[in-house]
Design a protein around this nucleic acid. Structure first.
Lengths: 240, 240
DNA sequence: TCAAAAGTGTTGCGCATACACCCATGG
DNA sequence: CCATGGGTGTATGCGCAACACTTTTGA
């Protein structure tokens, strides 16, 4: 891996990704923890090469983090307040950077990071079972957090998650993108619990089943016998 | 006015505005014509000062063009293909720039404009009667064009209008933003013709009236007598 | 009195919701 | 045989679309 060189990137423009996953009836977001004295949590992000489209940059950043590359991905908002500076990070790098000279600062991108950045927000929907979260160079760990109980995030990243969730809610029904969060086959109960996690409200079981089946985008497969003392549910596969 | 200095702006990031107006049952877009041998049409755009939010930059650009500043304005998409360069403009400035030296090129922003730009798309809804389009330094003219018969636009600006119109259609009902396109008072027919212009399809008069009135956002005022030999329509005012 | 445009009412359909019931499964 | 959870059917209300009818206006 080459050392950091800010000259390769578009200046003062970044990408941040809200990566949604789903497991055990919870909508989750992938959040790295930055390795510093005071723990900082931030969205996975990155920069755009001079000869790279913003969509490709987002895909590259996602692949770096998740190891998978056929991900549902959508640009949803640009965050560009005038004072959008990564103050949390800089405050906690003071002692770190004091021991460096100017050249070292440049080489490690510290000066670069002290700039104002306009950030393009993307959200991604992944099958959480296929993801092997990769810990970045600056990170201590990467974890899935329930979207309802995220740790405090740096800068405006909390707001970025909020807006991503709003967009997901608006698009879930219309674009039928929810199935990107599920494994290859799933039961109707899983679909319902996913919807309930996204909208944070219950749905009536019979009406929900009817609504989803009437979309005509699911193929009914064999039954799933779990050993439980009840009727075995059908498995489904998404057709599009 | 100061001479152009690219150092004052965020690099390689621009804003382009699709300014919608409405008149005579037509949805219109404000398009400047760039002053060159070959006529070029482009969206009104500009750049972002280093200490300016992107929303404020968009408002400033709009005010420069329209003279009004309480405009409905919404960021809708970022356009960032890898080769997004203003080739049309550069091709037509060759002889122009041949006669300049390097310093003059810099001073006039010609070199700056030859860069790749990521552009944030905004759309605006204005009361066309309040606007006095201002001709920019580089422009030959600024005109309102029917969105259905725009001239050929440079770069991806045609695509930008398309996407802005899609967004407007999605938001018109949900956010009740259409009234920004109408004058202070208006008849129900005008509202309907506006909707028909936006969606490019007819609506049934009685059902449309009922739908709009049931929103409870209009105040019914006095009747409007035009001298025509038919029942006088009510005037309405938008309440929000 | 008449044409043109505005205002209002009625009916039917589709969709979402609420309630109810039956079925399969393993202990 | 029973508790549990899955699958399906029916009634109701609301919003939208299609139809019809009445009212106002100035020539």
């Amino acid at each position: 891996m080459n050392s950091f060189n800010s000259k390769n990137y578009l200046q003062q423009l970044s990408i941040d990704c809200v990566i949604f996953g789903y497991k055990e009836a919870e909508l989750k977001v992938l959040i790295p923890k930055i390795l510093l004295k005071k723990p900082l949590y931030s969205l996975p992000g990155g920069f755009i090469y001079l000869d790279e489209s913003i969509d490709n940059a987002a895909m590259r950043i996602l692949e770096e983090r998740t190891g998978i590359n056929d991900i549902y991905l959508e640009q949803y908002h640009v965050f560009g307040k005038e004072n959008r500076i990564n103050k949390d990070l800089l405050d906690n790098m003071e002692e770190f950077s004091k021991q460096m000279n100017q050249i070292e600062l440049e080489e490690n991108g510290i000066n670069w990071l002290s700039n104002r950045f306009v950030s393009i927000g993307y959200y991604a929907l992944v099958d959480i079972n296929k993801v092997n979260p990769k810990i970045g160079k600056m990170d201590e760990s990467v974890e899935w957090y329930n979207v309802k109980s995220l740790p405090q995030l740096i800068m405006d990243h909390g707001e970025m998650v909020e807006k991503a969730l709003e967009t997901l809610r608006r698009n879930l029904d219309e674009k039928l993108i929810g199935f990107n969060l599920l494994p290859e086959t799933f039961t109707m109960r899983e679909v319902q619990e996913l919807y309930e996690a996204v909208y944070d409200k219950p749905f009536a079981r019979n009406n929900f089943q009817k609504k989803i089946l009437d979309l005509n985008v699911l193929e009914r497969l064999e039954k799933k016998f779990t050993g439980a003392a009840n009727k075995a549910p059908y498995l489904y596969r998404f057709l599009m």
